[in-house]
Design a protein around this nucleic acid. Structure first.
Lengths: 181, 181
DNA sequence: GGACGAACTGTACACCGTCCAGTATGCTGG
DNA sequence: CCAGCATACTGGACGGTGTACAGTTCGTCC
């Protein structure tokens, strides 16, 4: 975090991302600024721009990075249970990082390797349910509801997280029944 | 918009809201600042704070105001068609104001008189379908998907608005079938 | 007509993202 | 071993943000 001046910090893209993760964990989204991340690294704010093109790009990386905490469903698991479980785990993960949910929505669920891996695992499970051509549509429907309910749970609602999670479970059932049946 | 100095502007909450609407229409969400709204009214930025507690509150009002463009479904219309139509009309409206979609999500669909009126009209239609105790849940599911798909349509997706609208139609059918059947 | 409260202005603070110009560093070829 | 060079990084600045504070001016009511 601190260096004797005149030495290189030896930053990397990953180091910047890690610092961003730390700052976000400690101070939330409002506290996540280029300046705060640079401060965490003991570095001038503009130094980040050698490793990250934009604050937007940094946030993109942070969003996908977070999805790395999610284990993709095993391809040989029960398909319906795997899909449900993945979406509920996503909901729970997002609940722990409420600030980010609107960002996921705005960028349509975050591109990036982790997100892609999850999507592909879901497609595999759907194929085993006989859903093939419409798989993309179903994945999208599941994700939309999951992110949407997470967003609702984010704001201080008349409804608590538990109720919304129950809602999500029911909704997922409706969607899967509609898609498969 | 301009006054000889020394005269009162005679602002009201509604005037501020109207100016915000104008600024947003002309310059989008990034261009919507307290300063720009004040400029539109020919007034110092802080003058707004006599009529609006916060930028957040102003945006809240703007969000609900926009929903005023939506006609609630008639209580004696065909329930399924009314619900579907309302959600699709909402999707289309949001498509015309893409910047705002993440904000709706973040505030869980915007409270306010217009939003409430829409919700209540939907509950009435659901009652005629025999959905009573679970009506709130169903309304939420419909709204979540509609907002979610609107959010996806907002970002420059691999998928265009037309495809996502078609997705939404299918999803709404699944949800309604699941809820009613 | 004098007092009062609300509306509005001027100024300022503490931030923000990011650009520009410069400096120092480590790596590479000769 | 040394010159040259690309890269990493710093200092400083620009233009923007939301909003707090203190002061002035006005309309209204007793």
């Amino acid at each position: 975090m601190s260096r004797t001046p005149g030495q290189r910090a030896g930053l990397t893209h990953d180091a910047v991302l890690a610092a961003a993760r730390t700052v976000f964990a400690e101070r939330g989204l409002p506290g996540l600024s280029m300046r705060s991340v640079a401060g965490e690294l003991g570095v001038a704010p503009n130094a980040l721009y050698s490793h990250v093109t934009d604050k937007d790009a940094l946030v993109d990386a942070l969003l996908d990075d977070l999805l790395g905490a999610l284990a993709p469903p095993a391809p040989d698991a029960d398909p319906v249970a795997g899909l449900r479980g993945t979406m509920l785990a996503t909901f729970d993960l997002l609940g722990r990082h409420a600030d980010l949910v609107p960002l996921y929505l705005a960028r349509q669920g975050a591109r990036g390797p982790h997100a892609r891996a999850l999507g592909e695992a879901m497609v595999v499970l759907l194929a085993r349910l006989g859903v093939d051509e419409a798989a993309g549509r179903v994945v999208r429907a599941l994700i939309v509801s999951t992110l949407g309910y997470a967003a609702l749970a984010t704001a201080d609602a008349p409804l608590g997280t538990a109720e919304l999670r129950a809602d999500l479970e029911v909704t997922l059932d409706w969607l899967l029944r509609g898609a498969v049946g």
